[in-house]
Design a protein around this nucleic acid. Structure first.
Lengths: 223, 223
DNA sequence: TCAGTTATTATAACAGCGTTATGCTTGCGT
DNA sequence: ACGCAAGCATAACGCTGTTATAATAACTGA
């Protein structure tokens, strides 16, 4: 049980590097991660990054996965009421809270997700295994899908709809809102919060069945 | 009229650099822009970038503004029917067409807009002049605002609403959709197109008044 | 038109980056 | 206990943006 089990010396080195990189990320953003400074911080040389992660790309990928894990934790920490519509609203809020609370991690998720060169350089898109699968099967997305399926099951959303389509609609909207808010397109925090609730409410209402709409409006009026 | 008028030798150099940088951007993405390669391409030295743009940041800023100009052209080239609701739909489509047709420019807009370090390094946020103003007064955003105001004027959207709030809701949604689509979260182009129309339709319907909703559904049923 | 001043550019050097080649050193398996 | 394989430190390579210096070009004023 030298290397197969967890807790080897190598894993300790890996964790130390990852923690230090995480600190650099949170302190100065994705662009502030330098292998040389990272190695100096941990007390080793840059070669450690290559043996542990295979290079800087591997390190960034590890941070990227950690970001998604943190998001998943934030999502699953959200209150899960019996009403799936309220659960969906809580998931949206949790997403925003994560983005605002971990802006550097969120920036990393976006910057590592969006740019064309990154997706080109990393893996040739020769239909090997599209990135979509990687995300769709992630717990973070599964949470959202579960909530959508629950809404469909109770008739708040059309039962014959494609749940992935509905989940993507909500995801894209929430992501766009957080992206713009973090970019600084908000005059005040209150205005950003209002825009978030108004927009997510609008897209959610737009996806509901008449029955679901009635239910949703009873919630918003009650609260 | 040596330097005050247009067409100086200096402006020609600036334009040559900008065009070459634009080509590098479209070919290899934002990260492929190297001052040395750019200077070699134009047939000068890297110092030209410093005299014309003040450095690489200035060059990127110029490309950033060019990206917004191109977006504005695409927006204004969109058909403008008498019905503001249809105009709004056309603006959304034009935004997506621009993003898909100029992915590198779009990536630049996002990457230069979103990351925390960029906004920190560039200008200290000492309330000097928030970025929001810069964007809100841009023709591209004004187009959207005009359409929203037209919808409010005809009663399709609540007349007592904040037009900026409504415009931001649509902008964030469309932006989030394009961002996710360009990131590669689409199994097929058809699926991405369907998701776009479904989501934008949902958020638009969610922002309408009952009268506006009736009008909108008469359009979708007619077409 | 010519002299003086200013601005622009080419060359080279500087500091930093990710990556890689080369030995040394360490630790594990036999 | 020995031998071998893996990990790390050192140094070098090629690249990046930026800056100092010196020469050149252009424009201004007499």
């Amino acid at each position: 049980m030298s290397t197969s089990s967890a807790g080897s010396r190598r894993d300790a080195q890996r964790k130390a590097l990852l923690d230090a990189a995480s600190e650099m990320l949170m302190h100065g953003g994705p662009e502030a991660i330098s292998l040389r400074k990272l190695a100096a911080k941990v007390g080793t040389s840059t070669m450690a990054v290559y043996t542990s992660f295979g290079g800087k790309d591997g390190l960034i990928t590890a941070l990227f996965e950690e970001a998604f894990d943190r998001l998943t934790v934030a999502q699953q920490a959200a209150e899960r009421p019996a009403e799936p519509l309220l659960w969906l609203a809580n998931l949206s809020r949790a997403y925003r809270d994560f983005a605002l609370g971990n802006p550097s991690y969120y920036a990393l998720m976006i910057s590592a997700t969006l740019p064309v060169p990154a997706s080109i350089r990393h893996k040739e898109p020769t239909a090997d295994e599209p990135t979509a699968r990687t995300i769709a099967s992630h717990p973070s997305y599964q949470n959202l899908l579960d909530a959508v399926n629950a809404c469909m099951a109770e008739g708040s959303m059309p039962r014959d709809a494609n749940p992935t389509l509905l989940a993507d609609a909500l995801w894209a909207t929430v992501h766009g809102l957080c992206s713009l808010e973090l970019a600084g397109f908000h005059e005040s925090a209150e205005e950003a919060a209002e825009r978030f609730s108004v927009t997510t409410g609008a897209v959610l209402r737009g996806l509901l069945t008449p029955e679901g709409l009635k239910k949703y409006e009873s919630f918003t009026q009650a609260t």
